[in-house]
Amino acid sequence: MPVTNPWLAGPSPSGRLPTDRLEERILNLLSSQNMCVLATAGPAGPLATPVRYFHLDFTLLFTSAAGSPKLRNIAADPRVSIGVFAPLVGQASSRGAQVFGEARILSPDDPEFGDFWPAVRWQSDHVERSRSLDDPPLGPLVVVPATRIVYTEHWLRRDGYAPRQFWKRAPAAR
């Protein structure tokens, strides 16, 4: 029987990608997708919510209605996990990331808001809803700097690399 991707057979390789190549692949995934699943924990238990995200390097951003369950959970416990994935058509196309970090909720009067807000492309939503582009939304912005990322891509097996790779943010310089 012919096999489409024979390199998927057998044990997975264990090679580690060099950091610069891993970062490039992660950024490619973050740039080519726009939906994720945000996992939070709150008094009622875990909550997994699909959200549209934006990113600046390894920091994910999304907007939300004030008082939403996900914002209440983040306010109580800022530790989050975010799943980003490409459409799956078979093992060879399996590609995604688990992003871990601590979320911060920024309001427009927060000094850091302006550092992140330009990455949020809210204009298309306003056009779709017949709202004026002169009146940007004023809701909260959630910012999640990734502290670690588990990246999965089965195509890496072709070149002798493990399909699961691990990234950690470098410690801040003092």
Rank of each mutant, 00 (worst) to 15 (best):
H126V: 07
R52K: 11
D57G: 12
T147I: 08
R104P: 04
F113S: 01
I82R: 03
F85Y: 12
D110Y: 06
P145Q: 07
L17N: 04
V84D: 00
G15F: 11
E128R: 15
T4Q: 12
H55K: 06
W117Y: 13
A66Q: 13
D135V: 10
P87V: 03
L17E: 03
G160A: 09
L22R: 04
K168F: 10
A44T: 13
A173N: 12
G90T: 10
R104V: 08
R104G: 02
P2L: 09
G83P: 03
P145G: 04
S12V: 09
V142G: 00
L60R: 04
A75N: 11
L156A: 01
L22S: 01
G90M: 07
E102D: 13
R131T: 00
P43Y: 08
E128N: 14
E23V: 09
H55S: 11
R21C: 05
V143A: 02
F116S: 03
G42N: 08
M35T: 13
P136E: 04
S32N: 14
N5C: 07
I149M: 02
I105W: 07
W7S: 00
R104M: 10
V3F: 05
R164W: 05
T4L: 13
T59F: 11
R157E: 11
S32T: 14
T63I: 11
N5Q: 12
S64P: 07
S31I: 06
A146V: 08
I105T: 09
L88C: 06
P69K: 05
P13V: 05
P145A: 04
R72S: 05
R121V: 13
P78K: 03
S14T: 15
T40M: 02
L71S: 02
G45N: 09
D125L: 12
S81G: 14
P50M: 06
L133K: 07
D134W: 07
R121Y: 13
I149S: 00
Q91L: 13
A76V: 06
W167E: 00
A103F: 08
G83M: 15
R52N: 12
R174Q: 13
E112Q: 15
A173C: 07
F166Q: 09
W117K: 02
F116E: 04
F62C: 00
F58S: 01
Q123Y: 10
L106M: 08
N5F: 15
T4H: 11
R158A: 14
K70V: 02
A39K: 07
V89N: 11
P136T: 05
M1L: 09
Y161P: 02
N73L: 01
P145M: 06
S130N: 14
L47G: 02
A172S: 13
S81V: 13
